[in-house]
Design a protein around this nucleic acid. Structure first.
Length: 568
RNA sequence: CGGGGUGUAGCGCAGUGGCUAGCGCGCUCGGUUCGGGGCCGAGAAGUCGGAGGUUCAAAUCCUCUCACCCCGACCA
């Protein structure tokens, strides 16, 4: 295309609300425009990239035996009530009424819709396994959309669903998708990790996340340097958190006026946070429980919920403390009027520690388990952090940030059961489908590529398979007819071979063209300036390695075909 | 949802009671430059987020409201 006729509304200023690289580049480079919080228009170059990413995903999903369909974005409330997710999904789900006052939702995901479809159409084991996917807009009314399309409310997602006759077959399908995902992200030249993401009731290797390595990633990943075990910090199991043995000192009651937080207690008493045990009051299923954690550890609500066997629990509010007549900021396990106490393994073997005294403005010092308080069982309740022990081999865990671009999951019969989705097996018996679901954020993948491939010095580099165009010709001087002719001829010649070329034929400053070219990130950049007229050599940069070369016409064509050939 | 912040030209911002609201970038026109968002000149462009109030006088003070952004949602 000719840049003069193409729509790429760039801007020089960094938008006020853009914080991360990909967001800044996408706004400056004319990829996206915000319409409302978390809602964006995809402009032509972004749309081209999205289509290419989607097509790579399609190719590998098709290979894995899945068929593409498209489900409606709007679905009736009743379907969501069948699984109970109408309430569980809560405020994230955008709800509205039609003119007849019937209630509908904008699909945040499509398990219910696909299960409904399959239960109505698939009746026999002979039709299984069945794999279906769509590339569809999703809407989730996120609490806090941010980072441009990285965490938007409206976003494009590939979501796939599998239906198998047995658990074993479901695992086979799951493995196929796992392979497909590895191929997809590898093809896009992303550095990523496949990360364990589930330790709950289903257990085992039944859920994995695909994480693109990036400092701005919202997920924290732990990796064992010794055995290579990788997991999301939300899911990393902890077997042991070491505490030093000490000679017990006598317990003391200390006045701590208005000293409420671990931070404050630590400073006031001059003790390390790891020598404080915090008592967290949690409301779970209409009753209150207390959780004991070492002061430097954070409570992982997911782990707690799994242990309690509840879907959700929440921290007690100030009014709960009032109701229970507990002094907020000073509660502790000593004579606590809450009988359900869950202690984290970080508290085990801890000696001479500090706890709240259950008395306003008082803490106890030198508390010891067995002597002052009793704990008969320890649970794994905290987030793993760098330096913790690997649950597999005992090695040390390292941590880094990642962007979750894909998630694969074995669902079992959770949906097929609640929605009464059956098939008849080879023994003539009615069975629930064994399901799996598999997502990839298409827009988020695009943003992730920018996070990894853009640098201030070299500009953006889009891998050929996803690039908004293959070649970017910078025609620096449009008032020089001879040069214009050279540019046009090259542009037309490449166009005829089907190579996707853009030529910057605008009558503007060279600096602007270079700056915008760095934002566009076409893998091959060709510069035609006055220097060309001297020696008839094109300046060519392959952005992947940022190598600048000068070559004559025939060499250039050969070079381009070589590089583009890699793609085909 | 809690806390904080911001809304003034397309974008980034200045303007804390006083005349006709400014600056940079962008845009238009003219000139110049012609390999890293260049330079000179001229110009177009604003219901100062909205509503109400205080005042002789409001972008500026007050109330309400809307939108957007940031932090938090680990507090024991």
């Amino acid at each position: 295309m000719r840049r003069s006729k193409y729509y790429i509304p760039t801007q020089k200023e960094i938008p006020q609300d853009a914080e991360i690289k990909s967001h800044i580049i996408m706004i400056k480079g004319g990829y996206i425009r915000k319409l409302s919080a978390g809602i964006y228009t995809l402009l032509p170059i972004a749309q081209k990239i999205m289509i290419k990413i989607a097509n790579i995903v399609r190719k590998h999903m098709n290979n894995a035996g899945f068929s593409e369909l498209v489900m409606p974005i709007v679905s009736p409330k009743e379907l969501w009530e069948e699984t109970g997710r109408y309430d569980i999904y809560g405020k994230e789900m955008m709800k509205f009424n039609d003119r007849h006052k019937r209630e509908f939702v904008l699909g945040p995901t499509h398990e219910e819709i696909i299960t409904d479809l399959v239960r109505k159409t698939v009746k026999s084991y002979k039709e299984l396994p069945l794999g279906l996917y769509q590339i569809q807009t999703k809407f989730r009314d996120e609490i806090r959309p941010r980072f441009g399309i990285m965490r938007g409310r409206e976003f494009l997602m590939k979501d796939a669903y599998s239906f198998d006759s047995t658990k074993e077959h479901a695992v086979t399908t799951y493995k196929k998708v796992e392979k497909a995902y590895n191929d997809i992200f590898s093809e896009m030249e992303l550095e990523f990790s496949e990360v364990a993401a589930q330790s709950g009731p289903i257990g085992g290797d039944t859920s994995k996340e695909f994480m693109v390595h990036a400092d701005v990633g919202e997920s924290i990943i732990l990796k064992c340097e010794k055995c290579g075990y990788v997991s999301n910090n939300e899911k990393t199991e902890l077997v042991e958190i070491k505490n030093e043995k000490e000679v017990p000192a006598p317990m003391e009651d200390i006045e701590t006026v208005n000293i409420k937080t671990v931070e404050a207690v630590s400073g006031f008493l001059n003790v390390n946070k790891s020598k404080i045990v915090k008592t967290i009051l949690v409301r779970a299923a209409d009753k209150f429980i207390a959780v004991l954690l070492r002061g430097d550890r954070d409570l992982n609500m997911d782990k707690l919920n799994n242990i309690l066997g509840v879907d959700a629990s929440e921290l007690a509010l100030e009014k709960d403390f009032v109701k229970l007549n507990l002094p907020s900021g000073f509660i502790g396990p000593f004579e606590l009027p809450i009988k359900d106490i869950y202690a984290d393994i970080s508290v085990k073997d801890l000696c001479n520690f500090v706890i709240g005294a259950n008395k306003k403005d008082h803490h106890f010092k030198n508390v010891n388990i067995g002597r002052d308080i009793n704990i008969d069982k320890y649970y794994d309740l905290s987030f793993a952090i760098e330096g913790d022990k690997c649950p597999k081999c005992g090695g040390s865990l390292d941590s880094f940030h990642g962007i979750e671009v894909g998630h694969i999951f074995i669902l079992g019969n959770k949906y097929s059961k609640s929605m009464k989705a059956f098939f008849v097996d080879d023994a003539g018996k009615r069975q629930n489908f064994e399901m799996g679901c598999y997502g990839i954020g298409i827009g988020r993948t695009m943003a992730s590529i920018i996070e990894q491939k853009y640098s201030k010095e070299k500009g953006m580099y889009w891998p050929l398979c996803v690039a908004p165009c293959d070649i970017d010709i910078l025609l620096l001087n449009t008032s020089d007819e001879a040069l214009v002719k050279v540019g046009d001829e090259l542009y037309n010649e490449l166009g005829k071979t089907g190579i996707d070329t853009i030529i910057d034929d605008r009558n503007i400053n060279a600096g602007v063209k270079f700056a915008e070219s760095d934002l566009l990130g076409a893998p091959i950049k060709i510069v035609i300036g006055r220097k060309y007229l001297e020696n008839k050599k094109f300046e060519v940069v392959y952005r992947k390695n940022n190598e600048k070369q000068f070559m004559d016409h025939d060499t250039l064509i050969k070079y381009i075909k070589e590089i583009i050939g890699i793609k085909i």
